[in-house]
Amino acid sequence: MTADRLDPKGLIRESFRIEGIGEPECRSIFLDWALSLPDGSDSQQALPLLIERHASEPDDHPMMAVLREGLGQVGGPKRRGGWRGRRGR
């Protein structure tokens, strides 16, 4: 069996097979998935491919929501205020 570069441990695949799974369990599985990616892998590149792979799964499945949420939470650092944030203006 060849290793799946998008889901090395099969965690995401198996999460869709667990009957009655909730969002907290899916978040925990997602974290384990992210930590199990091989060095040099980019989760932000893998997420759209995983979503596409599991597009036939129910749209209201908690793991699908977690995967989509994972796409939207990456952003640059936010300004926290203080004199350093205003310096140079």
Rank of each mutant, 00 (worst) to 15 (best):
S36G: 11
I18S: 02
G81C: 06
R79G: 10
L11W: 00
R80N: 09
M1L: 14
G40R: 13
H61C: 10
G81I: 06
Q73Y: 06
D4K: 05
G10N: 09
G10T: 08
T2M: 09
R80C: 07
A65Q: 12
G88H: 08
G85F: 08
G70E: 00
I29R: 13
R80H: 10
R68T: 08
E57Y: 01
I18N: 01
K78V: 13
G20M: 03
R17D: 13
L49Q: 15
S28C: 05
L6I: 06
S36K: 08
V74S: 12
W33T: 02
G10E: 08
R5K: 15
K9Q: 13
R5E: 14
I18H: 03
G20F: 02
D32C: 00
R17C: 06
K9E: 14
P38V: 05
D7Y: 11
R80Q: 13
I12Y: 03
A46W: 06
I21G: 00
G88Y: 09
R86V: 10
P48Y: 01
L11Q: 01
R13K: 15
F30G: 00
R17P: 00
G88R: 10
H61G: 09
K78D: 08
C26L: 02
W83V: 08
T2V: 13
I12W: 03
Q45V: 15
W33F: 10
G88C: 05
G72Q: 15
R27Y: 00
G22P: 00
G81Y: 03
G72A: 14
L31T: 04
I18D: 02
G20H: 09
S28F: 05
G81R: 04
P48H: 07
H54L: 12
E19M: 00
E57H: 03
G20A: 12
W33R: 05
S15V: 03
P58S: 12
L71K: 06
E14I: 04
D60V: 08
R84P: 02
Q73S: 10
L50K: 07
P48S: 08
E69N: 05
A3K: 13
D42Y: 04
S15I: 05
E23Q: 08
F16H: 09
S15F: 00
G22S: 01
D42A: 09
S43C: 06
S28K: 12
P38M: 03
A3D: 11
D60Q: 12
R89G: 15
R27D: 01
E25I: 08
P48K: 02
R13F: 11
G75S: 14
S15L: 04
G75N: 07
G82E: 07
I29H: 03
D39N: 10
W33M: 05
R17H: 07
